[in-house]
Every structure is written in structure tokens, then in C-alpha cells.
Nucleic acid binder design. Structure first.
Lengths: 178, 178
DNA sequence: TCGCGACATGTCAACCCAGGAATGTACGAT
DNA sequence: ATCGTACATTCCTGGGTTGACATGTCGCGA
């Protein structure tokens, strides 16, 4: 939220829209959280109500303290590694369902990765050439991460399905040889 | 937990150790959660106390219902896409700190990816040849995902740092030409 | 035999988060 | 003029998470 407000003042509703439109792939947020957090940030002096508009609209702007805190967070606070992937957790227990279903699971993962990849390509077409140099660059970089991640996931899932198929084949041969 | 118990009975403490040792990269859990969850699973009839040992040790085993539920979850419940990466979120706001610090951030991400990659390679050396065919295969597949992910992250971060450097250069030229 | 470290479980407060319900206002199109 | 839609905020409930605290037992080595 400090990051969004650093680009200019906005209301809670504006921020909500931004989260839904452009940040939902990276950091989804709900309105309850958003408004609560705005209140908290205001109490800590990191944001301030700059103006009140129609319909009770409160336009928030970032304060100097807020900017300092944002820069601090950006470069000094170590990023937390994203853990907890139920997609990967399932893989560990895939031997419980047999090679056939396991292969199916992995193939579906591959398909989904392709689908997400396509969606990101669509977004890239859509945002092409928007914003100034710096903004476009960092948006591009984030998008590229998504593209590479989904591509890697597709390759991996296909490779994994192949490995499972090989095991299936091996088992079938052993059964045949007995 | 059902997945772990499907490999054989264990106490809450055993499960905790397993989470710490081998699942912490995929699904970290704390003891409070673990014991609470064991109680819940027992109440739902998905696990059962099989034996009691010294020190109040309660050995749980998975029930038939539990196995059914596990298989159901593995193949029928759609995996949730992992969102929320503060690492990526920061990228969006990197223009707030200038090209120099931004490049530094990305370079540190690349270093960290290399470090994680090396750790995973170490794990692979360590677990090589353990377990039976199926178990080894799925462990391998999960590990391979980590390897590919960290490799992709390194490539991406280096590529991104290069892009930022290019922007830096461009700006410097413009400043010189004025 | 004595004490330490590993084994083992349980409880609690605080926080974050998702989703939904409730409430109301202003604007634009017909 | 009015009606629907978008704007805009607040509150509530339930569930997941974390981290700390509390308690106690067994086994082994000095």
C-alpha cells in the first residue's frame, strides 16, 4: 500500500481496484484488510488523509515517514522465501494414488501452467508501451518472472509425467516377465 | 499429515520432526498446529491412536477413511495457485530506490537463488538411492522442481539486473548529452 | 545415582486473513 | 425525475498461524 501511494494519493477504494486489477497475481488483498491496514498506517503516521471527497471518500497520501519506511522495506528487509506449495506437497504423496492418477495430476499441472503462461502473454500485449521508462521496466521484469515461472512449470510437469510413465512401463514389463 | 501417516504410524512428535527435516521447504508447521490438527483428525475419524508408548507418547495411524480422504485430496481437489510473493511485490516499487539500489536488490536475489540451488544439490547427494522406486521418484520430482525454480530465478534476476544496468547507462548518456 | 538433553504433549493470546453483510452516497443515462 | 451502477466505508465472524508458555517423562553417560 505504501508502494501504491508513493505514486500518488488514492482512496481505499482506489487501492482496492489497483489490487484487483494489477497486483492480484502478486499480492491479493481484500477490502476488510485494506481499510484496516489504512487505519493502522495512518495511526503510525506513515500515511495521512490528504482530502475528503464525495461519498465519504478519504484520499490518503504517503508521508515522508512512509516513504522512508517503504525504501527501508524495499532494500533492507530480507525477502521471505515463499514456502508452502500444496501443489508440490501433493507430489510427495503421489505414490498413494498409483502411477496412472499421478501422471494425470502432473499432466494437469502442465496444462494449467500453459494456460497461465498464455494469460500473462495476453497481459503483456495489453500493457505494452504503457507508463514511463522506469515503471515499464519494473513491470516488465515482474511479468517476465511470471512467464519464466510458468514455462519452467510446464517443462517440469511434462518431464515429471514422463518419468512416471517410464516407471509405469517398467512395472508393466516386470509384471509381464513374471 | 495424512500423507505422512499413510507411510506408517507415528506420534505427533515424530511428525513434527519429519516436518522440520524434510517438509519444511514445502509446508512448514508448528507443534501447536500439529497437535491441534491431530486431535481434529482423530475426532473426524481420519486417524486413530494405535498405541501408547512411554512419556505419554501416542502413536497415530491413518484409518481407511483417512486414506480415502487423502486420495480424494490428492487428485480431485484443485491445487491452489501460490500467490503472494513479497520478493516480486518489491520489484513493482523498485523505481522508488533508484537504479543502483534496484540493481543491488536483483543481484542479491540471484545470489540467493544460487545458494538455495546449491543447498538442494546437497540434499540430492544426501538422499540419493534412498527409499523404494516410487518414493524415490516422487521425492526426485519434487527436488527437481526446486532445482529448476532456483535456476530460473537466478537467470531471471541476472537478466533483470542487466536490464536495470542498461537503463542506468541510458540515463547517464542522456545526462552527458545535455 | 544424578542430571541433562531429548522425547512428548498440551494450552493460550495475539494477529492476520477471507468472505460476507450492512449501509449509504453520487453520478450518469434514459 | 428516477433508477441502476459504481463509488465508498465499516463491522463481524470464523478459521488459520505463530510464538510463547507450561508440564512432565525417559534414557544415557559421567
Amino acid at each position: 500500500m505504501l508502494g501504491l501511494l508513493s505514486a500518488g494519493p488514492a482512496s481505499g477504494y482506489d487501492l482496492l481496484k489497483t489490487f484487483e486489477l494489477s497486483l492480484e497475481n502478486v499480492w491479493p488483498a481484500t477490502q476488510s484488510q485494506l481499510y484496516a491496514e489504512l487505519g493502522r498506517l495512518a495511526k503510525e503516521g506513515l500515511v495521512r488523509v490528504a482530502a475528503e471527497g464525495p461519498r465519504g471518500r478519504k484520499e490518503y497520501e504517503i508521508t515522508e515517514e512512509g516513504r522512508t519506511e517503504l525504501r527501508h522495506w524495499l532494500v533492507e528487509v530480507p525477502p521471505t522465501l515463499t514456502r508452502r506449495s500444496d501443489m508440490l506437497l501433493r507430489v510427495f504423496f503421489l505414490d498413494q494414488v498409483g502411477t496412472d492418477a499421478a501422471r494425470g495430476y502432473l499432466e494437469r499441472l502442465a496444462e494449467r501452467a500453459v494456460h497461465e503462461h498464455d494469460q500473462l502473454l495476453g497481459i503483456r500485449e495489453f500493457v505494452i508501451g504503457q507508463g514511463d521508462d522506469a515503471l515499464r521496466l519494473y513491470g516488465d521484469i515482474a511479468l517476465e518472472w511470471g512467464l519464466r515461472l510458468t514455462a519452467a512449470q510446464r517443462d517440469w510437469a511434462e518431464w515429471a509425467a514422463g518419468r512416471v510413465a517410464a516407471l509405469e512401463h517398467e512395472k508393466a514389463e516386470q509384471a509381464g516377465a513374471e
